[in-house]
């Protein structure tokens, strides 16, 4: 890439639902971000290149965006194994972005054939044999789907030539250093251990009964809002842990407990510390948290 040329951006789909592509199309600054790149191929946006040319593996590629999970053999497009194409571009690229949980860890579609399907560099939390070869250029952006602003941030950092601080799974720390719980509109209820009385209420925390995985799921959904306006937990839906290597878990709308104690603790919090704090917080009945916030004329 010459000093002046824009980096070539190539978006490649493997086993996917297209959800990441559509999520990114909802970025309000989409075309400003893309203006920093030469968009070489995209599954939805026109680029002047055909899929046949892309599959031939001959297009330029500085930034490779991967969407969907991978299998060694059996996913062919136009007679070509998609993994082979991905490897060709991965070899050329300076940055590889695994966009979404499927490309990063394997995701939902992995469950069809757990031994054959994985993410590009991770198989759930384990490194795949490909990891070593691509680790130095890998950026993981899990999420089902990817948050448009998260990808926008990474692309702009690349365009700006900045170093992105990454964690051990190559996730940007600025996005995944916190949990989905951070910034949740129900935080007060979590602090005082007041569970919601059921679905469809703005009051109460979803961690105790409704299966919310927010306190132990990495991601900034409640700091950088979805569609610039909301999030699952704000809308009363439990966080489903969609950025995590083991997504999806099972019985997603119920909190798994042992003798009433949540099976999974908030991220990094020792169980004894959690139970002590919980026992104390629960001992107080705080009137404000037992009441409706708004009483419409009933």
């Amino acid at each position: 890439m010459s000093a002046k040329a824009k980096p070539a951006l190539l978006w490649l789909q493997s086993i996917t639902c297209n959800g990441n592509s559509h999520s990114f199309l909802n970025h309000p600054d989409l075309f400003s971000i893309l203006s920093h790149f030469e968009l070489v191929y995209h599954p939805i946006l026109e680029t002047g290149q055909t899929i046949e040319k892309m599959l031939a593996g001959t297009l330029p590629c500085d930034v490779l965006v991967l969407e969907g999970s991978f299998r060694q053999k059996g996913l062919r497009k136009n007679g070509v194994e998609v993994l082979e194409v991905a490897l060709q571009y991965a070899h050329k690229a300076e940055h590889i972005i695994t966009a979404g949980t499927c490309a990063t860890f394997g995701g939902i579609f992995k469950q069809k054939a757990p031994d054959a399907i994985s993410g590009f560099c991770f198989d759930e939390a384990e490194q795949t044999p490909r990891y070593r070869q691509y680790a130095d250029k890998l950026i993981s952006l899990p999420g089902c789907p990817i948050h448009p602003k998260w990808l926008g941030y990474v692309l702009m950092m690349i365009a700006d030539g900045r170093q992105i601080p990454l964690d051990e799974m190559h996730r940007p720390q600025e996005l995944y250093g916190i949990t989905v719980h951070t910034g949740c509109s129900r935080n007060e209820y979590f602090e005082w251990k007041v569970d919601t009385k059921g679905f469809g209420l703005k009051e109460g925390c979803l961690f105790y009964e409704q299966g919310c995985q927010g306190p132990y799921t990495r991601g900034s959904c409640n700091r950088i809002l979805w569609n610039d306006i909301s999030s699952k937990t704000i809308a009363g839906t439990p966080c489903l842990g969609c950025t995590e290597p083991d997504f999806p878990r099972t019985t997603l709308f119920e909190t798994k407990t042992r003798m009433g104690i949540p099976e999974t603790m908030p991220l990094g919090v020792p169980r004894r510390a959690y139970l002590t704090a919980t026992g104390i917080a629960k001992s107080f009945k705080i009137k404000r948290f037992e009441e409706r916030i708004i009483t419409y004329d009933r």
Binding site: S23, P145, W226, S230, K232, A235, T237
Partner: peptide
């Protein structure tokens, strides 16, 4: 998303 929390993939 005001009602559903997000799009795509609301539950």
């Amino acid at each position: 998303a005001i009602f559903a929390g997000q799009w795509p993939h609301s539950s």
